[in-house]
Design a protein around this nucleic acid. Sequence first.
DNA 1: GCGATCAGAT
DNA 2: CACATCTGATCGC
Length: 441
Amino acid sequence: MEEGLISVDKWTTVSQVYFLTHLHSDHTQGLTPKWSKGPLYCSPITARLFPVRFPGFDMLLVRVLEAGKPQTLTLVSRSSHSKVLVEVTAIDARHCPGALMYLFRGQFGSVLYTGDFRWEIGDMKAVEGKNILLNALGDKKLDLLYMDNTYCNPSFSFPPRKVAAQQVVDIMTSHPHHDFVIGVDNLGKEDLLLHISQMLNTKIWVWPERLRVMHLLGFEDAFTTKTCLTRVRAVPRYSLTFETIESLNTVRPTIAILPTGLPWGKKFLDQKSLSYSCVSLCKEGSDIFAETGHSSEIFKSPRKLHQHMFAVSYSEHSCFKEIEEFLKYVNPSRISGIVSSAFCCINPRHYLDHLCKDESDNLCCKDSRGKLGLSVAWKAESVLECDKAFGIDKQINISGLLKGCKLRADSPKVLGVQRSMISKIRRRVRGVKIDHNDNFY
DNA sequence: GCGATCAGAT
DNA sequence: CACATCTGATCGC
C-alpha cells in the first residue's frame, strides 16, 4: 500500500484516515484535544470515552466502527490520484474496554493490526473475534500481521483473568481485617474490580475521574468516591510503592495488590535470569494460596513482593500460549511486533553474550530506516537457544510458530546499546503508518 | 507563559 | 528488564 493513506495509533504523520485501537496513553501519543489531521476511526466505547481524555476534541472527526461490520473506505492515491478501496473490519481485542484490532484488505493484500490484545483460550468473545477474522479473510491468507508481542516469550504463562480475579478475592477473604488498595490505570481491569465487588458484596472506591469513566462504561452501582463506604480502594498504579504501602500501614493494616502480567517489583529479580529469585518470595506467600489449587508456576500464583504487597497475574495482554494459538489461527506471512521490550523480541544471546561475544555484533545492527534492530529473522535454532537462555526446561516447540513467517525483530536490545536508546526506540515503535515500503525481514 | 515533546521514574 | 502513567525539564512560539 502506498504511503500516507492509513495510520494506526500514530498521530503525528500525515494520513488520509486514522485508526485508534484503544485509549491507553501509549497509543495516543501525539493525539491532543486540538488534533484535527483527519477522520479518526474507533469503537463505540472509545468514542464515548473520548471527551474525557480529550476535552473539546472535534467529535465530528470521530467515526465509529462496530466489531464485525466491515466498512469500505474510498481513499485517493497521492501519486496517481486514483481511487484506493480499503475494506476495514474491526475485531474485539479483549484488552481494555473499547479496544479493537483492525483488519485492512485491498489490492495491497491483507494487513491485521492487533493493537494490544488478550485472547484467552476458551473466551467466547475471542472465538467470535476469530470467526470474524477468518470470515473476512475468506480463503485469502494474511499477508502482514502487526502483533501485540508484549509477552511473546515462553517464559510467560498466566491464568485466565477470571482465575486471577478469584486469586485477588482469596487474598482479601483471608485477610478479613485489612484494607486493600489495588493499582489500576485510567482504563482497564474493570472486570477484576467488578468481580471483587460482587464476591465481597462491597462497593469499590475509585478516584473521581475514574468514577466518571466507570459511569460512562455503564457501571453505575459498584463504585464510589466515598472512602467511608468500603475497605477496598482502586488507586492509580503509579501511586503504589513500598513507601506508600508502608505509610498506609502506620494508619491501619492495608494490603496492596498489583494486578499485572509482569514479574516485578524490580528489586526482586535476579538480574541474570527470568527464572527468578522470585521463587523464594513466592514460597513465602504460597501457604495462604495453596487452597486456590492453581498451578504453582510463578506467573499463575500471587507473588508476595513485600510484607504488605502482592502481585497477581491479571493481564490484559495475551500470554505466550495464547499468542501461539492466535498465530496458528491467522497464519500470517509476515509478522511485525508492535511492542519493543526485553521480554518479547529479546536477542536470544542477551544472557549468553559472555559465551559468544565474537558473534554478537552480527545480530544487532541498523535496519534501512536507521532503527536499531535485529536484521536477521529468528530461526528455529535461535529460538531454542532463547529457551535455553531463559532457563526453560520444558521443550516448548515454538519453532512451528515461525513456519512460513519472518519475524521482524524491532527490538533494539542489549549488546552494548544504551538504555536511554532503548526507551527512545520503544517510544518510536508504537503505532504504524501502514505502508508497503516498510521493510520486513 | 503555554502547549508540545522528551527523559526519567515507578 | 516497565503493562501504562506521571512528573519535571526542555523547546518553540
